[in-house]
Design a protein around this nucleic acid. Sequence first.
RNA 1: GGGCGAUUAGCUCAGUGGUAGAGCACUUCGUUGACAUCGAAGGGGUCACAAGUUCGAACCUUGUAUCGCCCA
Length: 962
Amino acid sequence: MAMEKTFNASEAEPRISAMWEEAGAFAAGANRSRDESFTIMIPPPNVTGALHVGHAFNNTLQDILIRWHRMRGFDTLWQPGQDHAGIATQMQVEKMLAATGQPTRAELGRQKFLEKVWEWKGQYGGTIVDQLKRLGCSCDWNRNAFTMAGAEGDPRVGHENSPNFHDAVIKVFVEMYEQGLIYRGKRLVNWDPHFETAISDLEVENIEVAGHMWHFKYPLAGGATYTYVETDEDGTVTLSEERDYISIATTRPETMLGDGAVAVHPDDARYAPIVGQLCEIPVGPKERRRLIPIITDEYPDMSFGSGAVKITGAHDFNDYEVAKRGGIPLYRLMDTKGAMRSDGAPYEEAATVALDVSKGLKELTISEADALNLVPEELRGLDRFEARKAVVEQITSEGLAVMVTESYEEEGETLTRRVPYVENKPIMQPFGDRSKVVIEPMLTDQWFVDAEKVVGPALEAVRSGEIKIMPESGEKTYYHWLENIEPWCISRQLWWGHQIPVWYDEDGAFYCAATEAEAIAQSGGKTLTRDPDVLDTWFSSGLWPIGTLGWPEDTEEMRRYFPTDVLITGFDILFFWVARMIMMQKAVVKESPFHTVYLHQLVRDEKGKKMSKTTGNVIDPLEIIDEFGADALRFTNAQMAALGGVLKLSKQKITGYRNFTTKLWNAARFAEMNEAVGSEGTVPEATAMVNKWIIGETAKLRETVDVALEAYRFNDAANALYAFVWGKVCDWYVEFSKPLLLDGDAATRAETQAVMAWVIDQCLVLLHPIMPFITEELWQTLGTREKILAHTDWPSYGSALVDPAADSEMNWVIGLIEEIRSVRAQMHVPAGLKVPVVVRNMSVEAQAAYEGNEALIKKLARMDALHSVTDFPKGTAALSVTGAEFGLPLADIIDVDAEKARLEKSLGKLAKDIGGMRGRLGNPKFVASAPEDVVEETRANLAEREEEEGLMKAALQRLADL
RNA sequence: GGGCGAUUAGCUCAGUGGUAGAGCACUUCGUUGACAUCGAAGGGGUCACAAGUUCGAACCUUGUAUCGCCCA
């Protein structure tokens, strides 16, 4: 049965996948031969997800580690699963409903809508699993988990064997609540007006956009005036005028309606005369303008704008802090959609109450202030950006905008006019990372994790080295965030998610319990209503390491596989997920969930740009697998995985590694054609130097690969394998073996077959973690095996197999062949022509090396005979080889000028090297301070180079005689 | 503004103190019995710049320039 010339990936991959699956090859503990476990938790892709290049990269690295450990006999588990992805999934299903003409979410109601989501999940939730299988991921697919498993409505499709994740989430919430780590509060949170839910700080993207800064006058109450004085650095007065207003700059005029105060810096002399007075918000019905106090606070920056800041505690995070410090009421202006409120009492009524508050006649509770709608009737119900326009217009038309003089051209003349002072300037605006709409700081009741209370052990775990974050720069980022951590808002006003286990009675008192029955019992038998909100998706994925192993039950898996070992994930979710997992596992089971975190960058296109649909530079890993095979993509991923490096994926690179699979295939094909198959796995005995040499090289490779993988240097492992297979086995060993296999005696032939078979097998074994498909296919094609390759033992041989004599002899042979080829090419000797070689002054070692390998030297250098001479004939090109003076007698063909140029060039290079080495050795300080082996090596090197130089010089001399 | 990182061959990037590397691209040659998805040979680099530490610096220190990323 002759092998095909190339590996047919599209035919073989599904077949091999099926074989692995049937064999249960990836089950937890498969091929286990020792006690240590090795566990990786997959970063659960969104259940809505489709495989993109980032997943492909990330999962390739995980699979490499998993397969490597499984082959080494560890009790290995790669835990797969999906994340329920609250917002993303709810969005996807709503889209589907709209596209298929079904009732909307609101029309369906909560229960029916959730049924639709579960249905959708059953239908499409397995997509990513199939795609990961195509990549060759050796997860224990029977254990596939889901972060919503066991929640209400779960029909258990696609994660039938996963534990009851929901119970774990609820238990943790209740426990953390009882420990005082979770609390409910009315706080300013990031509100997404599109999804009408609170989101966490991390889900907000601050993007710089073109914005405006308006300057308005807030008139002083009762027409009061003061002298406004500006001075320069020296204290010289630069401006002094009577004012009846205070000037305020704002980028958000629509929030003026909710102002509770104007703040100035306590050191700001300009406003000292009016601190404590009231001023008027210059918007709203003229007869009912609200008055607010002018207060002092450290927050305003005296050099920014006018130095005076309006304080809208309910719509700005900085103002919120000022308002809390100053006891300023928080007036909410918008509804959940980001429109101006239209609820509550008429403006006049609300404004009257607010005025009493400003005057100190009345105090409001937070809820009372929140109930007050201070939006004037004509603005109620308007979108916030419409309201902004209306407010600006109103103020300007009333003459309360700060005016500046602007010059303009008209009919060739330069004229001036007075215009409102509006600065065009870039401002940072918050956007929802999912909805892409402007986020509104909003005062709402939410649930929070008191992050400050759980952050300590998480910080300590990394500081103490219990958890190592790679690359190290990740640790700095981690510290920086955790040291400045804010409360984590975990409630979401969504339907798809873990519903918060809290029930309220009619009086608003609440009871936190795992079940409704327990809550009722707590309440003393009252009628209760459950909190409609669900938990942030990241709250549940934060429990991934234990929830997937059956916690809170005391399971066999928990005991065997927890704590897990390595987490491989993208840099972008260090805070979202990694830090929170550490915090939560520390809080719940008092252990670090893993000992190593490997963070990688985003996978980009070949130019380093982010892949995006709009740019059109998206590479679809499934198309790549179709075209080049999964192994080529995987090898490319491994090869580009330099720690901390930018990941640039190009089709050209993938093509190159696809070619590498072909190269490997053909080396195996050569072995098969020469019956060099059927290795027993034990290192073969060898007598021929060639065979001893390649065995030693293989041993070095195994060490290099293990050292690289141990250090998560996937690129080093991949590059070493590539260099070995292509540069050592294919370029040299296969060629060396030909004379032995074709013309050698029976014993040599048998030995070489055995060694070749072993070497190819070792290539397959060592390459398997990176390229599982082609190696498995070849493994089973080349012999009848006891075990599949995925379960074959990883070798442990090492440098003891290196034979120094074989090593130096073969390197000498390679050097000689390369030198002959080089001279031939530069002298333009026809490629097919066999040439004689002359030699003199051959050392014993050189003679032995030559004679031991004459057949293959002759073949690979295309030489016909070696003649010993006492003097080189005229027109002989000298070879730069140690241990003997070799030459190519090319009297008829030699191009004297070309040969002179060649010699001079190599002499130039030699002179540079020799100069450097002599300089160093001539420096007594070098000899005194440098390590002995460095000095020794330099001496030996120098001697060698000097010998070469002598040969070249003599050759040049001979040319001159021609 | 704060933090982190990068700058090495035409391109993409390895290289943590001891002779500057790989892949691709390029040039020349090749129907050599595994492979043209191939083989052989070759050209190509003041390691961003400046100063310092050192016997010795692409590598360590400081500064400068340029470019990224994260956070405000």
